[in-house]
Amino acid sequence: MPPTIDRRGAALRGPSAVDVALEVNGERVVVHVPPRRTLLDALREQLGLTGTKKVCDEGTCGACTVLVDGRPVYSCLTLAIACENRRVETIEGLAKDGELHPVQRAFVDTDAFQCGFCTPGQVMSIVALLRTVPQPTEDDVKRAVAGNLCRCGAYPNIVAAGVSAGRRKRT
């Protein structure tokens, strides 16, 4: 159903499910969700992209970090409908043709995870960093993942992965 338009031209949508067009990992998709649905739940429940993790659901832990228009955001604090026609990138979009993204490769090589639950969020934060700071220092990486908790305590290796990913050639 198309959105109803009130007399001043504002689009009123919901409360029942509406079609929302997103670009997810380079593909145009339409999800049918209530306007109340978070981007996190839409990715996981509607699109089956469960690499993005749901942990705190209050913007504290960073496990749900995705990129919207290239910027890292907490997808649990973002409504799916607010991303209409925006570019969403998740962990699933990084590897190309069976080749890991340089940041993913760096995480493997530096042993930057234990349980792995926070890893997709950590990786997305570092991917965003490398686009603006291609050769980050340790401090750059620490600031980039300041909003991504790792309860296993793999931080030293996460930081090392971020620094070494900056030295890798992009495939």
Partner: peptide
């Protein structure tokens, strides 16, 4: 304030 994710929002 917060983290990059919070500051972006």
């Amino acid at each position: 304030i917060g983290s990059p994710q919070i500051r972006n929002a």
